[in-house]
Amino acid sequence: MRELLGRIPIFGICLGHQILALALGGKTLKLKFGHRGANHPVRHPDGGQVCITAQNHGFAVENDLPDGTAVTEINLNDHTVEGLEHRVLRAMSVQYHPEAGPGPHEASHHFRRFRELVEDSAKVTIPAAEVEIVTSKRGGKEKVQAKVNATE
């Protein structure tokens, strides 16, 4: 994933969301109550419209992410992270299933969003993304941080 970051637009779904988060230097945690069902409300952390989504996951991304990575959606039941975005790296992800098979359709706009991302990328030459992954060990735990030197 780190190899690809910044080079091409990325859309992570479910496990893909968690992998993206890890690649960007985030962490995941095991949920006390996993999210299972086609009835989970998500929304932007600051408000806005609620979207009902299909979910099936027992882990979630910790809401403690390196700079540049924004939380785009949270689960309203337990306020865990449901969506991420890194504008510069043109990467986005959702923890749930916008492909809706089975499940409600209202999150399908992500595919449009991703398509736009792909189209925008095609218009401009891909900047030589310089993504530097810095790993450091503190207290026996590995800390990963993505340093982005990309030019806007």
Partner: peptide, 10 residues
């Protein structure tokens, strides 16, 4: 008591 009403009952 904790979750919001913006959901779909199962």
């Amino acid at each position: 008591g904790e979750t919001p009403a913006s959901f779909e009952p199962t």
